[in-house]
Design a binder for these strands. Structure first.
Lengths: 139, 139
DNA sequence: CTGCATCCGACAGGATACTG
DNA sequence: CAGTATCCTGTCGGATGCAG
């Protein structure tokens, strides 16, 4: 009964930080990153600091609510920094932290992949729908 | 009136495939990828084919509904393939396509980043909350 | 075993209006 | 300009039951 103990312990340790486990912190972080607005905000900031309204313009279709919410969450997690200039009117700049910049590369890679392979995906989609229609007729 | 035409055309072409634009196909694809279950499924398949119930076990907390839904969407988009073996009981294997494998690298990179930097994020979170409490007291 | 159909609650998130 | 507050709707997604 002791033969697998060591292996089991190792397995458990490995699994402890495995993103697949529910409620695990890494999983939560992955959740946070798997957010539409997060990708877009990080990508928008990847080539330099931007002001709030600047971001709002750049990220078409984002509501002030979601933008603020996303920015706050990312600030909280140390992905970006928020700098307020108390002029009139107020001016707020957002900028990626070093941590954020290390992430930005990965996310823009995904974004670039999407732009590169969109055609392939469309082709696959049409193929799938063609087969589906065919199956419906045969059935 | 013609001085900026060429530049404008270029700009429009660039913008046409910009993931920031709403309703743009690339944006839609980015949406699809920014799904919690998508990351997990792709990651789970990144080291070989798996059966349905195998995936269900590996991805803790996924309901059959969401798993099937995610698998169908990814199959439709040509990210993975579905192979039915008409035995009794039925056996279904899922496997990444070449397209899917090219994506898997990127997504697991993000997952690895999450596992690597979770501590930093936690530290940032605590720092943020400390400042927040301080501000609340000062106010 | 591998799903699909249905119901239903929770909550994400858009629109709008207002404030420092 | 940079948000906050409120309302309200859609839809994501869990639970359950059933079928091939």
């Amino acid at each position: 009964m002791a033969t697998t103990t060591a292996a089991q312990r190792r397995e458990e340790a490995r699994v402890a930080y495995d993103a697949f486990l529910r409620g695990c912190p890494t999983n939560q972080l992955l959740d946070r990153l798997s957010d539409k607005w997060v990708s877009l905000v990080v990508a928008a900031l990847s080539d330099g600091p931007r002001r709030y309204s600047d971001l709002r313009r750049k990220i078409a279709g984002v509501s002030p609510k979601m933008l603020t919410q996303t920015l706050r969450a990312l600030e909280r997690d140390g992905i970006l920094s928020r700098a307020v200039t108390p002029s009139v009117p107020v001016r707020v700049d957002y900028e990626l932290t070093p941590l954020g910049r290390s992430l930005a590369g990965l996310l823009t890679a995904v974004k670039d992949w999407a732009e590169e392979h969109i055609e392939e995906v469309h082709a696959a989609r049409e193929r799938y729908e063609a087969l589906e229609a065919q199956a419906a007729q045969a059935g």
